[in-house]
């Protein structure tokens, strides 16, 4: 099996583990010094700060699972080349607070080292994500008053 096929399988294994709430199995796919960076407004979503190392990543994933009761994903595009894998995903998170689904697309780029994920980089349509998390349109807040 090529390294690309192996790495692709490893990413799917990590994603499946996370989606069933098995955070420790998902973390076992990562290096001890795994580096995580997403591009989202951290003043609104403070838990989405950069994370370095398994302990910090565990804390992030536990925070997500404390707020959402169900996580699903579909990955229509997975590309692998050398030690890198890119996924384009449709994701669905069910809120524990009211059972509403937060649904958004995300791009995740993984870099491997020694068969483990060493770097995770995410890009999300963050404007839409924030609207769904807040359950309100941001547009009126831009043109009108502050939302405090």
């Amino acid at each position: 099996m090529t390294v690309e096929k192996l790495n692709r399988q490893r990413v799917v294994h990590l994603l499946d583990a996370f989606a069933r709430g098995d955070i420790e199995t998902a973390l076992s796919c990562c290096t001890d010094d795994v580096d995580f960076l997403t591009h989202a407004p951290i003043d609104v979503l403070p838990h989405m700060v950069p994370r370095h190392g398994k302990a910090e990543l565990r804390e992030l994933w536990q925070t997500i699972w404390s707020r959402y009761s169900e996580v699903r994903y579909k990955a229509p595009h997975i590309l692998a080349e050398g030690e890198a894998v890119a996924t384009y995903m449709h994701t669905y998170f069910r809120k524990r607070s009211n059972d509403r689904i937060v649904q958004f697309d995300m791009a995740v780029f993984y870099t491997f080292r020694g068969g483990l994920v060493a770097e995770i980089r995410e890009i999300i349509d963050s404007y839409d994500l924030v609207q769904q998390v807040l359950e309100r349109e941001i547009g009126p807040l831009i043109t009108g008053t502050r939302a405090d």
Binding site: H39, H47, R67, D105, I123, D125, S126, Y127, R146
Partner: peptide, 26 residues
């Protein structure tokens, strides 16, 4: 194509969008 759109909107506006922190639900 996916873009960090919240950042794009803030840059286009030339100011930050003030929203409540999501400390428990987001």
């Amino acid at each position: 194509v996916l873009i960090d759109t919240f950042d794009l909107v803030e840059q286009a506006l030339g100011r930050a969008i003030h929203l409540p922190k999501m400390t428990s639900v987001g």
